[in-house]
Design a protein around this nucleic acid. Structure first.
Length: 419
RNA sequence: GGAGAGUUGCCGGAGCGGUUGAACGGGACGGUCUCGAAAACCGUUGUAUCCUUAUCGGGUACCCAGGGUUCGAAUCCCUGACUCUCCGCCA
């Protein structure tokens, strides 16, 4: 959530951010209601002050057994007046809240301005693409030959986009999740959390998925709960409506969860095999930091995610997202795209973002700094990593001429696989 | 799913509808004392918003949330959320 005081002072900055992020929001209407609200609040406060004073006089008179009917009569009028103002004030506050929730975060100054992903900037490449002395197959062919997946039956029981991992495929998936969790816990110092997979509307609003993305969520109407699209949602919200101490910061959490995405309107776009799913597994890193440390923390999370790809010997590139491709809540994001050697393309396996105080404002997460001042902390997160496309890259990179796989050493301790 | 109890400030815990932002105790912070510490004593101890985004000072709101009654609500009424206990169901 944008600070309304900042918005009042810098409407043009916010207007530009909305435009550069391809969002829509009526700033003028918001500023107008904000003005109304403030003048209503002023009238309200004045009348209340009067009411409080006279009420005490009434109390005194009553105690002294004097007649206070005149005061009571005049206060009855004030009370009626207050009721009307209160109603207007509530309406104004509700409208401001609604409009404010639809204003995106402001991209950092060094984020390239561009309309869509074609304007993203590839910052660097790491590792070398695998080379073969045969024609490499794509992951579906490899999975089929080794019996790793059963997408047909997954679709039968739940619809397309709900994969079944089978036999060695299931074990590999489980090994990957465990490998990444342990890596972040042991080498990067994260604390693991296991969190609810269904969350409230308020929680979903706290991190910025709602109201914008409601159509992309699986919703349980009876309880008004949403299946999480990422562990970011429950993990970031663990401190909603709390005040931490600067001594508690920074905090680093890692969580594995399945993720659920309806992906409304994305049919037919890169959906082959495991590329785009309604349910997939992901290990997510989340950090709570003091504002002055969030830029450095962003780089650290990026490296934490990259470490996984490097440990698995995969070639990838780092992409800095332009404004048009930034998520609603993000102010700066790097994507990691892994090389799929058989499909011969880069696939996004991680998104690492700094949200500044945007989510902290929405979720009302504050902390007291060393001077005892109350401030909003900064939140960040990064996938570390999402498994489906990682699986694609692994299968395609480590395939051999006979169709069997020779998986990287790093996974050995997690699972003795012979496939 | 059924029955009951509860939700007050950093914590514990009071609070007849009218100087209650809230007794009392604890904690924390500052000070006195001390070579230093402990103890003792004194003082301070919230958030948001507005008046003026300096300071000082002041107004208003906040006792789970939202409504209602009243001149006036932490206190009365209604609805909801959550917590605890008992019963039922269940991995």
């Amino acid at each position: 959530m944008i600070d309304i005081k900042y918005l009042r002072a810098n409407p043009e900055v916010v207007r530009a951010a909305i435009k550069n992020k391809n969002e829509k929001a009526d700033l003028d209407a918001l500023l107008r209601v904000d003005n109304q609200r403030r003048s209503l609040q002023y009238s309200y406060d004045q009348l209340r002050a009067q009411q409080n004073t006279v009420s005490q006089q009434i109390a005194q008179k009553k105690r002294a057994q004097e007649d206070a009917s005149e005061e009571i009569a005049s206060m009855a009028k004030v009370a009626a007046q207050l009721k009307g103002i209160q109603a207007d004030l509530n309406a104004a506050n509700a409208e401001i809240e609604t409009r404010l929730l639809s204003i995106p975060n402001i991209p950092e100054a060094d984020v390239r301005i561009g309309p869509d992903e074609t304007h993203n900037e590839v910052i660097r490449h790491e590792g070398e693409p695998a080379t073969f002395d045969f024609e490499p197959k794509d992951h579906l062919a490899i999975a089929e030959q080794n019996g790793l997946l059963d997408l047909t039956r997954g679709a039968k029981i739940s619809g397309s986009g709900f994969p079944i991992y089978k036999g060695a495929g299931a074990r590999l998936e489980r090994a990957l999740i465990n490998f990444m969790l342990e890596y972040h816990i042991q080498k990067h110092g994260y604390t693991e959390l296991m969190v609810p997979l269904a969350v409230t509307r308020k929680t979903m609003t706290g991190t910025g998925q709602l109201p914008k993305l409601e159509a992309d969520m699986y919703h349980i109407a009876e309880d008004d709960l949403f299946l999480i699209p990422t562990a970011e949602v429950p993990v970031t919200n663990i401190y909603a409506d709390e005040v931490l101490s600067y001594k508690d910061l920074p905090q680093k959490y890692v969580a594995y969860t399945p993720c659920f995405r309806r992906e409304a309107g994305s049919y037919g776009k890169d959906t082959r095999g495991l590329q785009r799913l309604h349910q997939f597994n992901k290990v997510e890193m989340v950090r709570f930091v003091e504002p002055e440390n969030s830029a450095a923390a962003l780089k650290e999370i990026l490296h934490d995610a990259e470490d996984i790809l490097q440990a698995l010997g995969l070639h990838y590139r780092v992409v800095s997202l332009c404004t048009g491709d930034l998520s609603f809540a993000s102010q700066k994001t790097f994507d990691l795209e892994v090389w799929a050697a058989g499909s011969k393309k880069y696939l996004e396996v991680s998104s690492v973002s700094n949200f500044g105080e945007f989510q902290a404002r929405r979720a009302n997460i504050r902390y007291k700094d060393a001077e005892g001042k109350m401030r909003h902390l900064h939140t960040l997160n990064g996938s570390g990593l999402a498994t489906p496309r990682l699986m694609i890259a692994l299968l395609e990179t480590y395939q051999q001429a006979d169709g069997r796989l020779k998986l990287p050493e790093a996974l050995k301790p997690m699972l003795e696989l012979r496939i």
